[in-house]
Simulated assay, not measured.
Amino acid sequence: MLDGYIARKYDKISEFGKIIDPLADKVAILVIILQLYRHDYIVPLYFWTVILRDLLIFTGGIIVSQIIKKVLPSNLLGKITAFSIGLYLLLVIIGLEITLLYKIVFYISLLLCYLSLIGYAVRAYESIKWYKRNEAV
């Protein structure tokens, strides 16, 4: 979040940054979540939900970028979802698995994963539709 804020504040946003920043974030989450899963700290449902969501969003982003000739930046729902994933992983790492807060963040984070995936799919569809309609003009 900090690197995105700094890039916007100093007007240092680039097409390369729009690609590499979320990719770096996804790789970091992948490494953390993989280690937690391997050591049985997180359940398979959570592991696969996050992994498949990120894989689908990343792959879809590449496809959409090829079609519309630009990179779609992340949206607010995606940022909130990433924050909820980070918060959940932090709660796991510091050992708060038996608390009510842990359960609440777990379910909210899962729900946000599904909602953000749907949101990205709708946004991709709308962007492609808009691009094709305006490309013909």
Rank of each mutant, 00 (worst) to 15 (best):
R38M: 11
R38T: 13
N134H: 10
V71E: 04
I32K: 04
Y120A: 03
Y114L: 06
I63L: 07
K69G: 13
A24Y: 05
R53N: 10
L77P: 01
S74F: 11
G119A: 09
S116A: 14
I32E: 01
T81S: 02
I118Q: 03
Y37D: 01
E135L: 15
I118F: 05
L96G: 10
K18S: 04
Q35T: 03
A7T: 09
T81F: 01
L117T: 12
A7R: 08
L76W: 05
F16K: 07
G60N: 10
K12N: 00
D21N: 05
Y131G: 12
K132R: 05
S127Q: 03
I80M: 12
N134V: 04
I19C: 08
V137W: 07
N75C: 15
V43S: 05
T99R: 05
L76C: 01
I93Q: 13
L90A: 04
L55Q: 01
L110Y: 02
Q66A: 09
Q35V: 14
Y37V: 00
I98S: 13
I93M: 11
K70S: 10
V122M: 12
R133P: 04
I108F: 03
Y37R: 01
H39G: 00
Y37G: 01
L23A: 09
Y37Q: 00
K69S: 12
Y41H: 13
I93C: 11
F58A: 10
L56P: 03
R123A: 08
Y120T: 15
G17W: 13
A136K: 13
N75E: 06
N75M: 12
L56C: 08
S14A: 15
E97G: 09
